[in-house]
Amino acid sequence: MSSHGEADLSVIGRLLAEPARARVLMALTDGRWLPASMLALEAGVANSTISGHLTRLVDGGMLTVQRHGRYRYYRLAGPHIAELVEVMAKIAPTLTITSLRQGTRAHAIRRARRCYDHMGGRIAVTITGALIRDGHLAGHDGSIDPDRMPGPRPAGGVLDPIAYTLTDTGAAFITERLEVATPAHTAVRCCVDWTEHRHHAAGVLGRNLLTSFEEHGWIKPATQPRALTLTTNGRHQLEETFQVDLEDHPAA
């Protein structure tokens, strides 16, 4: 007979202990399929070196791979890996910015980015906050301050995969204003945004919001990898729709 003991976190630790592999995971958090050559650039290693790192990540269950002709494309194994990366990024120290290029990229990612299949960053946090403020999401106040949250678990359950519920008014609002049908009482999964230390909507609602924003032309890919940018019309429409001030979020 075989039995299973506690999870061996050291296996994951060894996978992420190599900076090149950690950078690969960060590069893939927007849900894209990327070839090994591009991941080598993101990781800062040679093409001849990246294959070994990618093999270890695939064998460790963190990446999945597809072959198209001569080329292999890699993607995160699922949203649970993106969540792991986001949580770790929240507690990890930040890298020192040593160039204008690095600073520009860091600023763009903090402002708005694709977080697997939904949107993260300040804009996403602002919009999620507006949904909470207006009673469209039922739950706590979106903070992750343990001193302010009741309950036996850290932050009163704020780390639970499901933290909110879409209210009747929220479902009507999303359907009428954003043209995305999302049933009332839908459980809304949250992500603790690693740059803002507050929640942004994920799961079905987060995916529907990003899809709507993209289809309306309010959000588009930025020049920096993973980053998203507001269009001029997008800023106007989002400010009007959610009654928020996005002055700190320059439009393209």
Score class of each variant (00 low, 15 high):
174 I>F: 13
94 T>S: 11
80 H>I: 07
147 D>K: 09
88 M>N: 00
163 A>C: 09
178 L>Q: 14
156 G>H: 08
82 A>W: 14
174 I>A: 11
98 T>I: 13
101 R>D: 08
69 G>M: 15
126 T>H: 07
169 T>W: 13
176 E>V: 08
72 R>W: 02
95 L>W: 13
70 R>Y: 05
81 I>P: 11
115 C>Q: 10
92 A>S: 12
170 G>W: 02
91 I>P: 04
104 T>Q: 04
67 R>I: 15
63 L>W: 05
101 R>M: 07
128 T>C: 15
90 K>F: 07
153 R>S: 04
144 I>G: 02
93 P>Y: 14
157 G>N: 03
173 F>K: 09
126 T>S: 14
125 V>Y: 05
159 L>I: 11
71 Y>N: 13
68 H>M: 15
170 G>C: 07
146 P>K: 14
140 H>A: 06
171 A>Y: 06
182 T>D: 07
178 L>P: 03
141 D>L: 05
87 V>E: 12
69 G>F: 12
177 R>Y: 01
78 G>L: 04
156 G>K: 05
95 L>E: 15
97 I>R: 10
155 A>R: 12
125 V>L: 04
90 K>H: 10
79 P>T: 12
151 G>T: 07
178 L>V: 08
139 G>I: 00
132 I>H: 02
169 T>H: 10
146 P>Q: 09
145 D>H: 08
71 Y>Q: 10
68 H>R: 06
79 P>Y: 02
110 R>Q: 15
